[in-house]
């Protein structure tokens, strides 16, 4: 990507998403799951930014908060300069035409009683993007883009395989001419050979329609394949953001390093020094003080237990939140 003409399409500032936890006593203070705890980042037009992390890190919650599927607790989200969180229902509905989402389980997100034709028609009708008489042609065009035949129109979701259903989900997202698509674990449920087909499709569509992707995934190999930039999250915080190659070749945060070295690589000749993290991710209700990773970090020093590390630009365009990133063994 050429840095010169980068235009910000989505700006997220100090986003927080707390979910209250049921109390089991009058006397305990009200507790919250701090699913997303003060994160900021921007998304440039036409790029793919991936959010990676393990379950409970807040990656999916971030996507949902941006779309206001759950109302964020605090923070600002600007889409093309417009404050999304300040929009009323009607304005928000209009904006949903620009912001689309593709979920992990296409079967759960497609109405089983609607044919593909009805599904696509509904999407277009809500956003009023295509005049009624032209919709049929538009549907056929969309099916063409995602590699489904024209006969698919009159069939129901259960008649399709998992990969084909994901194609329907993509066609529905495309139906309203979106600018930004949030892919929430969009290929995670698919077998590798099908996953490859969908990844290729997403890449081609991005080129064709100049789409911007926010790609949420736990699978680092997939992220490596599809992203321009990658953001790593841990327990509701951003720990590292960098361009893909930079992040994969020289990760700065100990968590990113451990994450990368944990992936099983399909190459038995590759013998690596593996960093295996000890223990489990702590509870997001009562996250550790200081750096949230310090309880599992092999390099943690006293400062890490006390002070929360800020996200700082250590190398150009490479941000990391670690007190001791400079002094880590490579």
């Amino acid at each position: 990507m050429e840095t010169a003409e980068k235009k910000i399409i989505l700006q997220v500032d100090h986003l927080k998403q707390y979910f209250p936890v049921k109390k089991d006593s009058f006397f305990k203070p009200k507790a919250y799951v701090k699913a997303v705890d003060d994160i900021s980042f921007e998304l440039y037009e036409g790029e793919t930014l991936s959010i990676v992390g393990e379950s409970g890190c807040g990656k999916s919650t971030t996507g949902r908060a941006i779309l206001r599927l759950d109302e964020p607790t605090d923070g600002k989200v600007h889409y093309m300069g417009q404050d999304i969180l300040g929009l009323n229902k009607k304005e928000m509905r209009k904006l949903r035409g620009d912001l689309q989402v593709i979920f992990q389980d296409p079967f759960a997100s497609l109405n089983p009683r609607q044919t593909v034709k009805q599904i696509l028609n509904e999407a277009m009708a809500i956003q009023e993007v295509v005049d009624k008489p032209k919709r049929k042609d538009r549907m056929l065009e969309l099916l063409g883009y995602v590699g489904l035949s024209a006969e698919s129109l009159d069939r129901y979701p259960h008649e399709f395989s998992g990969g084909q259903r994901q194609r329907i989900g993509i066609a529905r997202a495309l139906a309203v001419d979106p600018k930004l698509i949030i892919c929430d674990e969009a290929v995670s449920a698919l077998d590798v050979s099908i996953q490859a087909q969908i990844l290729n499709l997403l890449k081609n569509l991005q080129k064709q329609f100049k789409l911007t992707f926010l790609f949420i995934s736990h699978d680092l190999s997939v992220v490596r394949h599809i992203s321009d930039r990658v953001m790593v999250m841990y327990l509701g915080k951003v720990v590292e953001i960098a361009e893909k190659k930079e992040l994969f070749d020289s990760p700065l945060h100990p968590y990113t390093q451990a994450l990368l070295s944990s992936i099983p690589v399909p190459d038995p000749t590759l013998k690596r020094d593996r960093v295996i993290l000890k223990g489990d991710v702590p509870s997001p209700i009562d996250p550790p003080r200081g750096c949230r990773f310090h309880t599992r970090c092999p390099f943690a020093v006293e400062k890490c237990k006390q002070e929360e590390p800020p996200l700082r630009e250590l190398v150009k365009n490479h941000f990391v939140s670690c007190h001791i990133a400079e002094d880590l063994p490579v």
Binding site: S262, P264, L277
Partner: peptide
């Protein structure tokens, strides 16, 4: 998760 997967395989 991958970091837990690594633990279990080990």
């Amino acid at each position: 998760d991958v970091t837990i997967q690594a633990q279990i395989l080990e």
